[in-house]
Nucleic acid binder design. Structure first.
Lengths: 224, 224, 224, 224
DNA sequence: AATGAATGAGGGTTCATTCAT
DNA sequence: AATGAATGAACCCTCATTCAT
């Protein structure tokens, strides 16, 4: 957007718009296209179209469709990891920290639908590209480490049940948050409930918080 | 499924296959292809290849790629609904009935990965095709009706919390079960945990049962 | 050539011109193109252009560029073998038979330049395609068998030297005949001598006959 | 050839290579590429890849793909001419001199396959580039002059037949030597005989010597 | 003197669909 | 009822060259 053409003449000229800018534009366009259509169905031409460049230029920058896709995936994972860095959980009591993680995750999926779509798309492709990129495989672990720390604190304080695997907790949080986005169209259509960013997001998020906290807090109930 | 061939001889013969058989074969092949690659990336040629027919015949039977896809989707939804019919929940106490629903759902997704992939694929396509087919929209409701009935029984018996929306319960069950299949590749790769049909399915299913039952059963805890 | 367009309407219609005709046309056009430019540089578009069809149709018939090339090669070898079948050497005395083989070979190369160019092209490609096609490997042997038989007759009659390998004879005949075609441009330009089908073909052919017959007939000289 | 680097240090360093060295490296890489794939199929990128430079630099040095190709051709012809200069035929009796020429030519083709491939490639291109370069046309004559001188000596000595055109002799020598290299793949594959630099080079060379000397020496037989 | 950026043209192949038979 | 033939559009990628710096 902001497609302003300064003058007719410039159309015929080369436009060495600084490579970083072009790279970023292409990456953004590719993210949108891959998120929208998946790897196979995504079109290099469509990406070029979103950028006012050409397929040839994209290949010049990224080498191939797959390398471009990997760059997109890498950036998407890097972004969520960076967002998680701002979570500041240490100052919160365990249950509040869990609540914040759940809410953050839920909201991130809702507001970064492209990320969810990319992850789903990569799974539909059976993780082919992820497997080939060691850099990518390392990228998504920190959140579980954070979760583990909080759960440990909660155990020590006696407010969290102690027989739970942090990975299962992460899975539950991710599953309940993702489903809201991934299945919004079929679920929404069949059950007439607005999903994703539409409808009563806050209430749906509250249900998820409820599920997770009830589950983790049931320690006390058991204790009695 | 139940792809009964008219007689043993026809197996060895080439051409004269009855139209019903051909239709069924094509549908099966199309299901596999659409589940594997998604609507856009799926290839009519590949479907023809899996059968012993040609692209032209497929168009002759189904009209177009999209109509074929709708037939696939319709059959997939019909199959899970039929499976749910065998659930026989009325003879079970409420909590056991819930447990059965969770386990059934979890297992169905694991053993019918193609169904999950089709649903995901349709969602990645933003529900375009589902929206256009009224028949499809009606197809998946009964499970929620069953769930509602069980929850009502549970409320009456005082073993289930009363402030819960059956649709939320269905969502939680579906989300936790689907995630196991939909995200098996990224989750499995990043966290080194076998997902989907691999690894310790029973234990992972138990976690989901635990989450759901704890959540729904917390009524008693609240009551006290 | 003769690209007569009967009427404007026919352009819009399909033209199911009988597949054999189309196949043959494509094969002829492909032969010309591959002979003219070699495998890599040959263009499917150019072949389509020579045939008033499209690249897609060519792939429909032949599957791929390489398969088309193999079909061309196969036909080219088959043609020369068939021509050799008409040689009728048995009724000729040995030296006359050798002469006929040399003359036939020389003339065939001159009048079927495309064959020579295909063979050269395949050699420039290091025989990659020939190696992959067992059918092709078998195709060019008969001429050496014929040669062997004639040489044997000549030995028995005492008119041909006996210490010569038929394969070497074939090589000499082929080499001297091919060079005339393969190197016509550099040799012709540098030494101002018309080569190939131009200039005094009969005289140049006579030199080759002379070389071969002198060589093979030198038995008698040795004998004295 | 004789690609002497200014100092040992420069090998480890990246950029500051003297232009002469770069030119020579590019020329060597281009020779290999053009010999390997022919003019059309050769890739400027591949040439750049074999060097540590870029396509742009090659164009900067040589102007265009065709000019680069002409430089390659020119150098290739210059090299064989230079090699022929070391032949020192005057001290040899005529038949021995012929033998040396044949053996030298045969060996040169075997050991400088790239030269043969370039010549063939240029002929496949119908001599287009050679024709345009007057410098190139002048370059390959001396060998025939040498041959003429030897034949004249042989005639005078009565050991060589007198009715032979030196150009025909050159052609025979070149043809028999080149075929061994140019057709090594098809001939070798079809007749299971190792050609080119492989197999029994000495024996195959001896056959060629035999053919040429028998032909030229047949004067004596005729004389008697 | 040297090069990264950029591009239009063309490469071969796959595609879903149509149509005559 | 069924199918081989045919096609135009789109696919990703490579190419030799140009130009601003």
């Amino acid at each position: 957007m902001a497609l302003q053409l300064p003058s007719d003449r410039t159309l015929a000229m080369r436009k060495p718009k600084s490579p970083e800018v072009n790279r970023a534009r292409i990456l953004a366009a590719a993210t949108a296209e891959f998120a929208a259509r998946g790897f196979d169905a995504a079109s290099m031409d469509a990406i070029a179209g979103r950028t006012q460049t050409t397929r040839a230029l994209i290949n010049y920058y990224f080498g191939s469709k797959e390398k471009l896709y990997l760059a997109v995936l890498q950036q998407a994972y890097a972004e969520i990891r960076e967002a998680e860095n701002g979570l500041d959980l240490d100052h919160l009591p365990p249950l509040a920290a869990i609540r914040r993680i759940v809410e953050f995750t839920y909201d991130y999926y809702v507001s970064h639908e492209y990320f969810v779509r990319l992850v789903v798309s990569e799974n539909q492709a059976k993780g082919t590209h992820l497997k080939r990129s060691p850099a990518l495989r390392r990228v998504n672990r920190p959140i579980v480490d954070r979760l583990s720390a909080v759960i440990e604190r909660g155990r020590a304080a006696g407010v969290l049940r102690s027989d739970v695997d942090p990975l299962d907790v992460h899975m539950a949080i991710a599953a309940l948050g993702m489903f809201n986005v991934t299945n919004q169209f079929t679920f929404g259509t069949i059950f007439q409930r607005e999903m994703g960013a539409k409808g009563d997001v806050a209430q749906r998020r509250q249900v998820v918080v409820d599920i997770v906290l009830t589950w983790l807090g049931s320690a006390r109930a058991q204790a009695h």
